[in-house]
Nucleic acid binder design. Structure first.
Lengths: 200, 200
DNA sequence: ATTCATACTGTAATTATATACAGTATTAAA
DNA sequence: TTTAATACTGTATATAATTACAGTATGAAT
């Protein structure tokens, strides 16, 4: 969604929402009415721009003949290995994108591929994808995604106060991580709200 | 899909496939062409019948203004508790339907809600949904969905021969289930190819 | 300095589409 | 046995929709 102008983004979003709400794409007129255009040609121009940029296909002579070029639909990034220092959603960390799945009662901002065995006692295994929500308030006893000195880790949050944070690996072989947040750089990236595993 | 005639079923299926392939519903003409009708009114009549029976909505004056009332487009059933004796996919066992998710490299025929703790050592917990493929050949060491005397169970298949089958619960507290398939009714419903967990 | 992309207004024509009306034939229900 | 539902053909028309052409204005790129 990068080379789109903000107006084009709006048009594209409108088309998507029309499809998901009504079940079919809008006409030029419907687009124009929604945005207050006085000419259907304004919509036509936008559609051509979206087509040129590869976001939609237009079937000529076909009413509502707009099809979205999938793969940009409602796709949510899967984060693989996180490069030190880079923001979670940085391009370099995105392994692929998969559709928004109704796996969780909460929204999912991204999926994170699990490394290591530190959470096996709660059934989170290496290579599982955990669904992460960025906005839920970080709470005691939730499984959180934390960034400790640029190292991204998944742990259960057992204590959270101004001068003491305890992260627990759910694996008997690991010890609790006790942190003084004033001394160490600690950020919470999100809360784990779901899990996906591929068994091959 | 019960009170529909077979012809109406065909029309309905055609509309569904058009929507999923093209991204928008067909026109009366497109329906007529596909089925070889010589008049668009044949399609119109069918649409009215489908509307009357509650399968679609028709928006008057709107091109391609057909919306499906079923939202089981590419939806895959989630199987909850399985009633004794009933086939897996029997209506009574279907908890809900969710979209086809690209969680697995294999196809998914249905999701099965896990009961009990017999597989916790491989990270399968109570209430998880396991993705089941019915067609993959049952193999040793896969996690299988077996029906033992009408009881549906998820276990690892450790041995499979003509006169001995061993099903292992992946939980130290349970013993292997050793079966003589000639003496006991045993069917394999499928192989576990993935897992979904909602963490709330 | 000029071309190009963006973001529109305004008009208009062709064609795509919905949909009514008038029929015919078959089958199932009252 | 009459009615209603199903499954169409055939014709017709109003209107929905695409889409081209001719403009205007702005800002960014070459």
């Amino acid at each position: 969604m990068n080379n789109l102008t903000s107006r084009q983004k709006e048009i594209f979003e409108f088309i998507k929402s029309k499809i998901s709400k009504e079940g079919y794409p809008p006409t030029r007129m419907e687009i124009s009415n929604y945005f207050g255009f006085k000419s259907p040609n304004a919509a036509e121009d936008h559609l051509k721009a979206l087509k040129k940029k590869g976001f939609i296909e237009i079937l000529s002579g076909t009413s509502r003949g707009i099809s979205l070029n999938e793969n940009l639909l409602d796709h949510i990034p899967v984060i693989g290995l996180v490069s030190a220092g880079s923001p979670m959603l940085a391009e370099e960390n995105i392994e692929k994108k998969i559709p928004a799945l109704p796996i969780s009662t909460h929204g999912v901002d991204y999926y994170l591929r699990v490394k290591g065995d530190s959470m096996i006692d709660v059934g989170i295994f290496e290579n599982d994808l955990i669904a992460v929500n960025k906005d839920i308030k970080i709470k005691k006893n939730s499984i959180v995604i934390a960034r400790l000195d640029n190292d991204v880790t998944v742990k259960t949050l057992k204590e959270l106060s101004d001068n003491k944070v305890v992260l627990r690996a759910e694996n008997k072989n690991y010890e609790d991580i006790v942190i003084d947040p004033n001394k160490v750089s600690l950020n919470f990236e999100g809360t784990c709200v779901g899990l996906i595993r591929n068994i091959s």
